[in-house]
Design a protein around this nucleic acid. Structure first.
Ligand SMILES: NC(=O)c1ccc[n+]([C@@H]2O[C@H](COP(=O)([O-])OP(=O)(O)OC[C@H]3O[C@@H](n4cnc5c(N)ncnc54)[C@H](O)[C@@H]3O)[C@@H](O)[C@H]2O)c1
Ligand SMILES: NC(=O)c1ccc[n+]([C@@H]2O[C@H](COP(=O)([O-])OP(=O)(O)OC[C@H]3O[C@@H](n4cnc5c(N)ncnc54)[C@H](O)[C@@H]3O)[C@@H](O)[C@H]2O)c1
Lengths: 231, 231
DNA sequence: ATGCAATCGAGAAGATTTTCTCGATAAAGT
DNA sequence: ACTTTATCGAGAAAATCTTCTCGATTGCAT
């Protein structure tokens, strides 16, 4: 396996499929630890309680080809997915807002093995500036655009209060940030050339709260994945 | 507005719509602050860059009726949504794993106004037990089932390492927890009577990483929301 | 070798979600 | 009062996503 660029039809990859791949990836890693050698879509489906055809379609979508009656070589598939998602090529990121959530994110080393490395933290609070959080010195917010430009950083993480989200995003974009991961509960306006990913806990809270009150069980099995706000 | 039980067809509410409601809610709150008095679906759509019909369908789904040419009375709609989502009736929750993420969650007061109040924290680490985190004493994990039973708590939040997620979930369910919000990157098995909400950051990371590497802009405008793993 | 069973791959069908379209209604202007 | 216009509500159409089905391929057992 040395796979050609695993990009079948970039524009036609369902977001839902894209967001299921990490689930498969994690399960496969577990299988590696358990000493397995090969894996079929049916194995994945059984283990995760999903529809086998859906799993097959998702895996197929990444462009890897399997062998009938066997499935895929486990290590091949793991590396294929890493490569497909770009998780074997960590991309630098800047974080703004070194509060409680920001600090937790800064301390989370696992991001590096999933395509992102937070290389710098910024804040507007003089108390925070100069402090070290998990090994990184918090810098004044105003240094951000220049830092981004100099280091060609493409990814920005927002962990400020909601009111600051838009101005911080603007500042990021002014420096050349191309993708923003927003943890503040705020709607950010950005040109369509910038990739926006809102991590809105209230989405989940709404779903949980509503279902709990209405005694609804989990969604039908096949419906493994639901979307997160994009724009 | 004194709305009858706003439950048109419980089973037929699209998850996608459900998860868009918080976005509307937030925008409406902002409008209230800005002194607005009434609001139309078109206003919402314009402000959020979504399709007007989609907004209308979503709002319609909650069962509120508007007036042609006007839309809805702003405060009515806000309260209607709060009631529909259950955000005006905070539900107690237990949290397990008082680490960096768990502490951030414990310190986040905003949950209370969105249907959830974390009433107790548990951990397995003797160092953590007995400490106070944002006003709550961390209790030994083994006290959890009894606590849940005594207090009739229905919601559980998991912020432990992935390996502990399943056993912790089992413990929660043994006490009577009916809905689990899982922040650990792990697949939890639960009977369909238990509501599962996985908050998997790797979903977002996969989406971001992939799109960034393939120079894809944001998803088409209408596509405001994308799914989060449910099971 | 031959037949059997499991699986991939791909097209078709079905379900769900989003978008389009249009009639009804109420406010604002004429 | 009448017309215009913005909006809701609802059904139809389109797009998207999921599930079903089946032929082709491969490994395994006989
Ligand atoms: N804490 C949580 O568990 C949690 C959960 C969900 C969402 N959030 C959201 O994440 C964001 C951060 O939450 P938090 O609990 O870490 O808050 P926090 O108050 O602990 O941290 C916010 C940080 O942002 C900094 N900041 C404020 N304005 C800024 C600006 N204009 N530019 C740069 N930095 C600025 C502050 O100095 C502070 O360090 C909030 O939007 C919150 O709603 C937090
Ligand atoms: N820190 C982040 O920013 C972040 C981001 C995304 C996901 N997560 C996930 O959230 C979870 C917690 O992350 P964290 O950074 O807070 O980790 P952490 O190590 O700081 O905290 C984990 C806590 O769980 C406790 N714990 C361990 N085993 C337990 C058990 N069996 N029962 C009860 N408690 C137990 C530990 O004592 C510790 O207090 C992890 O699964 C992590 O992958 C964290």
């Amino acid at each position: 396996m040395k796979g050609p660029s695993p990009n079948p039809r970039l524009h036609e990859i369902p977001e839902a499929s894209l967001r299921r791949l990490p689930i498969y990836y994690r399960f496969l890693q577990q299988m590696v630890l358990n000493g397995a050698f090969q894996v079929s879509c049916a194995d994945l489906a059984r283990g995760l309680g999903l529809d086998p055809t859906q799993v097959r379609k998702d895996i197929e979508m990444t462009g890897i080809v399997g062998k009938p009656r066997v499935g895929y070589l486990l290590t091949d598939l793991v590396r294929w997915l890493e490569n497909f998602l770009g998780w074997n090529r960590p991309k630098g990121a800047v974080l703004v807002g070194a509060g409680s959530l920001g600090s937790a994110l800064l301390g989370y080393e696992r991001f590096r093995s999933h395509g992102m490395e937070i290389v710098a933290a910024f804040d507007i609070d003089p108390e925070k500036i100069g402090q070290r959080v998990h090994g990184r010195e918090v810098q004044p917010l105003m240094f951000l655009p220049d830092f981004v430009r100099r280091t060609h950083t493409l990814l920005g993480v927002i962990a400020t209060p909601a009111a600051a989200a838009q101005p911080v995003a603007d500042l990021m974009m002014s420096g050349g940030i191309r993708a923003i991961w927003n943890f503040a509960p705020a709607h950010i306006q950005a040109p369509p050339t910038v990739i926006l990913q809102n991590e809105d806990l209230y989405h989940s809270l709404a779903s949980l709260s509503f279902k709990l009150e209405n005694r609804l069980g989990v969604a039908p099995a096949g419906n493994g994945i639901r979307y997160a706000e994009d724009n």
